[in-house]
Nucleic acid binder design. Structure first.
Lengths: 186, 186
DNA sequence: GACCTTAACGCAACATCTTTGCGTTAATTT
DNA sequence: AAATTAACGCAAAGATGTTGCGTTAAGGTC
C-alpha cells in the first residue's frame, strides 16, 4: 500500500503524524533491535493502531517514512570558503552520520520498504552536492563532477556501511577524495 | 533470534530445510510483492509454521537465509584466458544478475534481516575477485587490486541498484572498468 | 461566521499471524 | 541395540493486522 498523498495538511492530521513520528523516534532510541511494533508506537503516540495501518500500511513503510524525514536535510552543507574543503567536510560528516548506529538503522529502514524511499535519499545527497557545485561556480572555481563523487566517494562509503566489512573512517574518506583529484581530467 | 547452528545435518533436518527453501523459491516467483507469509511457506513446504519460527525466528531471517543460499556461488567465474576479459565478464554478469528483478529482491532480503548476512555476500564477491587475481598471477599477469575493484566498480553498481536512480548497463560497467585502468599506478 | 461536504480518526469485532508447552519422532551417540 | 537428545507436529493462548461503521474535525461555500 502506497503512502497516501496528504491532502489535508493542517490540524489533526499533522498533529497525529508528528505524534507518531515522535513515538517511533523515542522507541527506536530505546530498543536496540528492531523489535518495535505498530501497537507499541500507537500506544506511545496516543493513537489507535488502525490509524497507523490505514495511513502507512505497514511497519516497514512507517519506519521508512520516519527515516526519510530524519535524513531530509534541514540546512545546506557548511560553507568553508573553498570547494575542496566544502566537499571534504560534507563527505566526512556524511560518513560519520551514516555509519553511526542511528544512521545504519535509518538506512536499513529506508531499504526495508518496497517503496520509492531510497531514491528520495539519493536525491538528498545529489542536492547537497549540487549546492556545493553551484557555490564553487559562484566563486569562479572549476566544479567537481557530481556523478563522479557519487560513484567513487559516496558509493564506496555506503557499500561498506551496508555490508559491514569496513569502517568509513575520516582517513578512508580523505583517501577516496584524494583518489578522485588524482584522476586524469575527463 | 539468531539462525541456529545446525548440529544435525542429515536426514529430516536437511529434508525440511530443502523443502522450506524450495517453497520460498516458488512463492517468491509467484508473488511479485513481498506478501509472502510464514504460514504460506509452511503449507507449501508441507511443514508446520512453528517449525519455521523455531528454526529461523522470523520471516526476514528466513528470506535472508534463502537469498544468501541463492547468491552463494556454485562455480568459479568463467576463465576467458586473460585477466582483463575475466574481470569484465564477471562484472557484467554481476551487474546483470543483481539488477534483475530477482536480484534486487534477493539483495533486499539480505539487508532486511538484522543478521550478518550482508557480510557473507560481501565475502562471495571478494572470493570471486580473489580467484581472478590468483588466476592472473598464475598466468604471469600483474593482478588488479581487489579493494579498488570493490570500491570503484562493485560499489557504484550496487549503489545504483539499491537507490534505483540509474541502470547498471554493460556500457556503464565497462566505463567503470576503463576508469580503473586509467588510474595512475599506486 | 454558520452550514455543508468529506477526509481522517476511534472503536470494536474479526481474521491472521506468532509464540509456547508438551508429547512424539528420528538422528546421533555409546 | 539401547540411550540420549535435537528437532518436529499439534494445539492452545497471545499478539498483531484488517475492516465496517459511526464520529470528529478540516476545508470549502454561502
Amino acid at each position: 500500500m502506497a503512502l497516501k498523498e496528504r491532502i489535508r495538511v493542517g490540524g489533526r492530521s499533522a498533529r497525529i503524524q508528528a505524534a507518531v513520528h515522535d513515538a517511533v523516534h523515542e522507541l527506536g532510541a530505546l530498543t536496540t533491535r528492531n523489535q518495535i511494533t505498530v501497537p507499541q508506537i500507537a500506544a506511545a503516540a496516543g493513537v489507535t493502531p488502525s490509524t497507523i495501518y490505514r495511513r502507512w500500511g505497514d511497519l516497514p513503510t512507517l519506519l521508512a517514512d520516519v527515516a526519510v524525514a530524519r535524513l531530509r536535510p534541514i540546512a545546506d552543507p557548511e560553507d568553508t570558503g573553498a570547494m575542496a574543503s566544502d566537499l571534504t567536510a560534507f563527505i566526512e560528516q556524511y560518513a560519520e552520520e551514516m555509519s553511526s548506529p542511528v544512521g545504519r538503522a535509518l538506512i536499513r529502514d529506508v531499504f526495508s520498504s518496497d517503496q520509492s524511499f531510497p531514491s528520495q535519499c539519493c536525491g538528498f545527497t545529489a542536492d547537497h552536492l549540487t549546492t556545493l557545485v553551484e557555490r564553487a561556480r559562484a566563486r569562479g572555481e572549476t566544479p567537481f563532477d557530481i556523478d563522479e563523487v557519487i560513484d567513487h566517494v559516496v558509493a564506496p562509503i555506503v557499500y561498506h556501511i551496508l555490508y559491514g566489512d569496513r569502517e568509513p573512517t575520516p582517513d578512508y574518506c580523505r583517501a577516496l577524495l584524494a583518489r578522485l583529484r588524482s584522476m586524469p581530467a575527463t
